Amino acid sequence: MSLNTTEYNNRLMDRRTFIKTAGAGSLIALAGCSMTETNDGPGNDGTTTGTVPGASPPSGTLTVATYSSFTGDGTAGNYLKSAFEAEYPDVTVEFEVPENGVNQYIQRKQSGAGIDADLYVGLNTGELVRADDELDSSLFMHSRDYLGRGYALKSDLQIDPRGRAVPYDTGYISLVYDEGAINAPETFDDLLEPEYEDALITQDARQSDPGRAFVLWTIDAKGEDGYLDYWSQLDDNGVTVTDDWEPAYNAYMNEEAPMVVSYSTDQVYYHGEGVDMSRHQVGFINDQGYANPEAVARFADTDQPALARQFIDFMLWPEHQAQIAERNVQFPAVTDAQLSEEFGQYAYEPPEAVTFDYDRLQGNVDTWIDDWAREVVSN
């Protein structure tokens, strides 16, 4: 199976911007919801819906705010909508794609306006941190401790110490390279060698998830005091910085450079008859990849807290986790997902995962990225 670049773009990346922000504030916002947060825990098969025994079947409309490529034909979002509505016939799932992502809800919260959605799909750690710095009250409510399927979550993917944001998948930032044109660099210092002059395309860390993750990865490798000097040298060696993932990957496919910052699941869509696999090799610098979990969270102002929680639990069922992973071209967030053999063959996990957790990013991430932009993008 193979897709053209446009189709791959639609399914592989959310292409969200770094300036989008996520929920903040207090630990729990459960006023008026105490009767809706009880669940009966996991069943013997581990696939509980988290419903209260004897309760009426869920009903009503659930509004899910998310990014554009989570919806549409063949996407994880439309799969979940169809499956959830089939499981609960009295429920309607509607998607909302805000132009400015979560930042739209931050601004509404700041102005005292209402939130017209029940939950948001697509948060990452940096966005959550930024929102906590910008809002005085909680945009999201606690969810993790009320999930029947919470026990199955991978512990290393937890992005929110307050339990508001629940991971549903993760990607690993890596290099994708043309092995017919270049050898895979083994270290970050290799990228400074003449062999790699004009060889790398990456993305603007202010606007791109993989671009930001790559910068954070260099901070992990070179330290806060050394990463800007490293990027100055990388810039001198001809690194190309594009606005976002899509133009970066398009430039790579147009052979403008033999290497691009992307995801280690690249071969999930680029394999099969007629595909030149030499153009889709995955490289892990220092035998590492930067983990970038995506999470879902309930808005504190939702009038459907129980239904929203039930949808989160539904996303964590093993069979649905497999569908999310394969349609989003990411790895599942639970330990018992039922992945296809083909996915396992072409999706690569790094020997070691690197990531900065919430506490490490809090109070630092904006400064790091702003300093990087002045050093690299402004030149």
Rank of each mutant, 00 (worst) to 15 (best):
L12E: 13
T17I: 08
K20Y: 14
I28P: 06
D40M: 15
D40L: 15
D40W: 15
G41T: 15
G46A: 02
G46I: 00
T48N: 05
T48R: 04
G50N: 12
A55N: 11
T61E: 14
T63G: 00
A65G: 04
T66Q: 08
Y67N: 12
F70N: 09
G72Q: 07
A76K: 06
N78Q: 07
N78S: 07
Y79Q: 09
K81S: 05
K81N: 05
K81V: 07
E94D: 09
E94N: 09
F95H: 05
G101C: 11
Q104I: 00
R108Q: 09
D116M: 03
V121S: 07
G122Q: 10
G122D: 08
L128M: 12
V129P: 07
D133F: 13
S143L: 11
R144K: 13
G148I: 01
R149V: 00
G150W: 01
G163Q: 11
A165E: 06
Y168K: 07
D169R: 05
G171F: 11
I173G: 12
D178I: 01
D178G: 01
G180W: 01
I182S: 02
N183P: 01
N183L: 08
D189S: 10
P194E: 01
Y196L: 12
Y196T: 09
Q203K: 14
D204M: 15
S208K: 04
G211E: 14
A213Q: 13
W217H: 11
G223Q: 04
D225M: 09
D225V: 07
G226L: 03
G226H: 09
Y227F: 12
L228Y: 13
D229V: 02
Y230Q: 02
Y230F: 08
Y230A: 00
L234Y: 03
D236S: 14
P258K: 02
S262R: 04
S264N: 12
T265P: 05
D276W: 02
H280N: 15
G283E: 10
F284R: 08
N286S: 12
N292V: 11
E294I: 15
F299K: 02
A300C: 10
A300P: 12
T302P: 06
D303A: 11
Q304I: 02
A306L: 08
L307S: 03
L307G: 03
D313C: 00
F314Q: 10
W317R: 09
W317H: 09
P318K: 06
P318N: 06
E319T: 14
H320N: 14
N328R: 13
Q330G: 01
V334D: 01
V334Y: 00
L339P: 03
E341M: 03
E349I: 05
F356G: 00
D357R: 13
L361C: 08
T367A: 12
W368A: 06
D371G: 00
